[in-house]
Write a protein that binds this DNA or RNA. Structure first.
Lengths: 118, 118
DNA sequence: CAGAATCCTATATGATACTG
DNA sequence: CAGTATCATATAGGATTCTG
């Protein structure tokens, strides 16, 4: 075990796992511009099932990345928003997007070359 | 589809998927300090099966992130190394590690609070 | 040594229907 | 509206064996 990243429970791995989770990142991006309700998220994040959305929101909430505010009204209204920690994570996601946009052409070209060569 | 990140095939998603992949990141980290042979990787990356290691290496190679050099000797010798694109990606991984180390305490505290509150 | 082939299981995810 | 419960499945991943 030379560097910490090899342990399953190291900090990097835990963050990596969350970043690698499709729905988590999408939710964070969605909430970057302000709070949203459950149904708004469900509608705007295409293809997500209620089950996965709830599971994702719970995970993000547990990690302190988003807040969940229940308004005691009928019908129910629940707002989700990024915490300051979540906003900090969003900064990381933005970095990822920048890298992706800057290098996706290289990756795509490499794939074409690889696929034609094999 | 408001932002590109919602598409399955957008640049960010593709990079995210690779970053989120356990073994890919570990291989990149392993190769950050220089080239390594297949068996070295297999030994030092704990718990990886030949199947997953090969699959991971092929994926990284296809994306132009690592190079694969076969030495025509007996017994076979194959070296893997980061390409310049791969080194660039490693920069991103380092950024992730820094964020993780800086904020893991907050995340952990949030988890404890959440678990005790529920 | 480097990896391919095979078999098998666990987990993640999806679809759907229901409820306070 | 904001979920929960249930069922079904796909597929990622692991263990193992074999070979150029």
């Amino acid at each position: 075990m030379e560097t910490s990243v090899y342990a399953k429970d190291c900090p990097s791995r835990q963050i990596l796992d969350r970043i690698g989770d499709t729905w988590s990142v999408l939710v964070v991006v969605m909430l970057a511009d302000g709070a949203h309700r459950y149904t708004e998220l469900a509608k705007r994040i295409e293809g997500v099932s209620p089950k996965m959305l709830t599971q994702t929101l719970r995970g993000l909430e547990r990690d302190g990345l988003i807040s969940r505010t229940v308004h005691p009204v009928v019908p129910p209204r629940v707002d989700y928003a990024l915490t300051s920690l979540g906003q900090s994570l969003y900064g990381l996601v933005e970095g990822l997007e920048k890298w992706a946009e800057a290098h996706i052409d290289d990756v795509q070209a490499a794939r074409v070359a690889y696929d034609s060569g094999v």
